[in-house]
Every structure is written in structure tokens, then in C-alpha cells.
Simulated scan of single mutants.
Amino acid sequence: MANTKLPGREQILKRMWKLANAGAQDAVRLACFPEEEWGSLEGLDLDALTEFKRGANGVIELKFADRGRLLERLLDAADHSGEEQVDRFLKAMEEKGE
């Protein structure tokens, strides 16, 4: 049975940061060059690519992860972690005073 342990908060935030900063070079390479020139797909960094379409008429469509939304969520996560730390500190101070 495969390990199904969920990633921790830090791992998720690191993954979001990586996606927000991912380049498009390999996706463009995938779209612009014939299949025989792709090389190994395993070597391509396509993490941010969410959709790839190549129409019969030659039109190529690439869609990527929404960087702006990822950054907003990272900012939100950073803000909430600070609030949690403040709440824990205040709770600890209240317990100490009792």
C-alpha cells in the first residue's frame, strides 16, 4: 500500500511558492518543437502547466497555474500564521496569570 500521508503546511506552502515562480520555458518547448525533439518528458519542468491543447488546425493552447491567486493565498496563509502565533502567545499569558 502506498504512503498516503498528507503533506504538512510547510510542504504545501513551499509547493505553492514553487508553482508561483515556475517558468514557462519547457512548456513552450513542448508546444513549439516536434515531438521527436522533445527529448525525455521526465526532464521537462511542466509543474505550472495545467492544460495543453494542439488543435488539428495547428493552434496551440497552453494554460498555466494562476500565479496571482497562488501569491494571494500564500499572503493569506502568512497573515493567518501570524494571527495564530499572537493568539497562542496571549493564551499562554492568560494561563500564566491565573
Rank of each mutant, 00 (worst) to 15 (best):
L6K: 11
G23E: 07
E83G: 05
G23N: 06
D26I: 10
V86W: 10
A24F: 02
E35D: 12
G58C: 08
L6A: 14
F89S: 11
T4S: 05
E84H: 05
D45Y: 08
A78S: 11
P34S: 00
A27Y: 11
N21G: 01
A22Y: 06
E42S: 12
E83R: 11
G39V: 13
G55E: 15
L74F: 13
L49M: 15
L44N: 03
G8D: 12
Q11V: 04
D26E: 05
Q25H: 09
T4E: 11
L19M: 12
L74R: 10
G39M: 10
A22F: 05
A24Y: 01
Q11P: 00
R15I: 01
G39K: 07
A77R: 02
D87W: 06
D26P: 11
A78R: 14
K53W: 10
I60W: 02
E10F: 06
R69E: 15
L19A: 10
L13Y: 04
Q25F: 09
F64R: 00
R54Y: 05
D47M: 09
N3R: 03
R29H: 15
R73C: 09
T50I: 07
L70H: 08
G58L: 11
L30C: 04
P7C: 01
V59M: 13
R73S: 07
L41F: 13
D87E: 13
N21V: 04
A20M: 08
I60E: 02
D66M: 06
K14Y: 02
L13E: 08
E42M: 11
G58F: 13
S81M: 12
I12N: 00
D26W: 09
K14T: 01
L74V: 10
E72K: 11
N57P: 01
A20G: 05
F52M: 04
D47W: 06
K5G: 00
H80C: 08
C32R: 08
F64H: 02
N57L: 12
C32M: 15
K18P: 00
E84M: 13
G8N: 12
C32D: 14
V59S: 08
E37K: 11
R67Y: 03
L62A: 03
R67T: 09
G82V: 10
L75D: 14
E61F: 08
E84P: 00
I60G: 01
A20Q: 04
E61W: 06
S40F: 09
G68T: 12
E83C: 07
G8R: 01
E10G: 00
I60P: 01
E10P: 00
E72S: 09
L62Q: 05
A65N: 03
E37C: 07
K53A: 13
